[in-house]
Amino acid sequence: MLELPLVKGDPFHHVMEAILDLSDVAHVVCTTRGLNLLAVDTKHLAIVSLLFPAEDFKGYTCDEYISIGIPIRDLVNAIRCGDDKDTITLKVGEENFGTITLSFVSPEKNTVDYEFRLVDAKLERFRLPDRHFLRSKYQGSVKMPSVEFRRICKCLSNFGDEYGVISVTDEDLTYFAKGTDGDVYVEYKQQEEDTTIFKIDVREPVRLAFNPKYLNTFAKVFTLSGQVKLFLSKTHPLMVECKIGQKGRIRCFVAPKVEP
């Protein structure tokens, strides 16, 4: 049995809204310890992963291992129909296995229940490597304010929706996008006196080409947290991470473009 309490605008809802146009199904694994959501876009160019420990999820109840595929559009449409003041609970029970129920209860105790079919998640199941493996693959990381990151992603995506580059050295971080009528180039210098807001940490310089559209899609999710951390690699997808609550986190991966 699983019960997920949701609120309009919470991280779970935010992630679902963000990936609405990229993917049809969110793969959710729930245990007594918490929830893990993974979604990959239909072209397999981007992945989003949400980890929500049970202690950060007020009212979370799960007494067994549950792996389900949630139809994103159905869920988002239902949440959009609800009122901001509604208490929303996503339920997967033993008696109605194969379906999810989304219950909305108003402050006056009026209720609306949506029931929809789960999607077979086995077809699209994939595995992300663990944190230690990931860390070993990245030559550089940059911590920066999420609002600033979102502004840049928007700017890059507006300019060129196909070709963007992030470069990092131990002195600066640069973003570049190529548009049809011009280019945009953004540079951040590492300030020695203040590394709490902006901090570069590189083993060697990295330059990574990617499609800015995907980064822009995810960037709004990261404003749920004050700061984002970018992980750059010469051989692996760009990874962007932010913390949610005490121990939760969101990670997004964007596949690189490389020389043939």
């Binding site: 990959v40 072209k43 397999h44 160019l45 981007a46 992945i47 086995k122 699209e124 199941r125 994939f126 595995r127 992300l128 490597p129 070709y163 080409a209 499609n211 692996h236 997808p237 991966f253 596949a255 690189p256 473009k257 490389v258 020389e259 043939p260």
Partner: peptide
């Protein structure tokens, strides 16, 4: 011209 890699190049899909 750059080649766009897909996630299969990095992570295992069943």
């Amino acid at each position: 011209v750059l080649t766009q890699l897909r996630m299969e190049a990095f992570y295992s899909f069943n």
